[in-house]
Amino acid sequence: MKNFINNIPKAELHLHIEGTFEPELMFEIAKRNQIEIPFSSIEEIKAAYEFDCLQDFLDIYYQGANVLIKEKDFYDLTYSYLEKCAVQNVRHTEIMFDPQTHTDRGISFETVILGISNAMKDAKENLNVSSLLIMSYLRHLSEAAAFKTLEASLPFKHLITAVGLDSSEKGNPPSKFKNVFKASIQEGYIPLAHAGEEGNADYVWEAIDILGIKRIDHGNNSLQDPKLVEAIVSRDLALTVCPLSNTALQVVDDLKNHPLKEMMELGLKVTVNSDDPAYFGGQINKNFSAIQNALTLSKEEIYQLCKNSFEYSLLDKDSKEKHLTELTSFYNTNR
């Protein structure tokens, strides 16, 4: 099963590029930029990656991002992740980035997006991994701040496919960002949002009814409301589930109790993703292996999860069909 998971073609739809910041690269860039970090060794950083909740994680997440200053830093961060995609048979990935994490530190929007997008372009040519960008608004900040980010993004609109909503969920419902999402859609951005990770089912309702999102990031707590489950199925919305993230942040106490299999049985279109792999203990294949082992998923179920990842990606129809043909061929040969 491990070889099957490692080799099956797949897409990753829920990935924060700042959350791929491995300790080794953090040390390298901090030294390059002559920035002091509050850790004396790589081992000390790894030891700090133990969290009791989402906010504990976010505190160190933003601390790590402080060493990212130059375009090359964002390039190196992104290309390092895309290299890991290539060896895991990730054919396509949809990368979230948090401009406000950087612009609030005085880093220009241009520096951030050019570093990331140039790495994406090179990875497509060198590694045969396609990717697109999701610009995430930080929900613990104001909607006015999100509007400033939207405005800053417009000269680079050709490099951005979608907008998202992440950071501290509790107390920051999707409705708080109703107007900026409406404006983002008018600019041509596809709306997505984190909902139902720590927030309850009402947050998911708001995300789909008020923000009009086309895909739900996380969505675990959708199961609190049977009518919501029915609505998600009838509207054909996928969930980008992140197993190791859920246990690291104690959203789920044990992978054996993870709702992924129940979601699938209810007809929800689920995908498996790594979220913030440097912090949560594993890239996408490790997430697949861990959840497969915990829930005893079959090859057919793994295939369905990978199929969902392509079908509910933001790729064009022809690209989806190309990937699905390759996936089906692999499955028929290896099942």
Rank of each mutant, 00 (worst) to 15 (best):
I5E: 04
N6F: 04
A11Y: 07
E18F: 02
F21N: 05
E22W: 13
L25P: 08
L25E: 07
F27A: 03
R32N: 01
S40K: 14
K46G: 15
K46T: 15
A47H: 03
A47V: 00
L58I: 10
D59L: 01
K72L: 13
D76R: 08
Y79E: 07
C85M: 04
Q88E: 14
Q88L: 03
F97M: 01
Q100R: 11
T103K: 08
R105C: 10
E110R: 14
T111Y: 02
I116L: 11
A123F: 11
E125A: 14
E125H: 14
N128R: 12
I134H: 01
S136H: 04
F147G: 01
K148Y: 09
L150D: 11
E151W: 08
G164C: 00
D166N: 14
P174S: 03
K178N: 10
K182D: 00
L192K: 04
G199D: 05
D202P: 07
W205C: 12
W205Y: 15
D209C: 12
D209E: 15
G212A: 02
G212R: 01
D217S: 12
N221C: 07
L228P: 01
R235F: 00
C242F: 05
P243A: 02
L244W: 06
L244F: 05
T247Y: 00
D253C: 12
D253T: 14
L255E: 07
P259G: 09
E262V: 08
G267H: 04
T271R: 05
S274N: 11
D275Q: 09
Y279P: 14
F280K: 11
S289A: 08
A290P: 05
A294V: 01
T296Y: 08
K307E: 15
F310I: 00
D318R: 14
F330A: 09
Y331R: 00
Y331S: 00
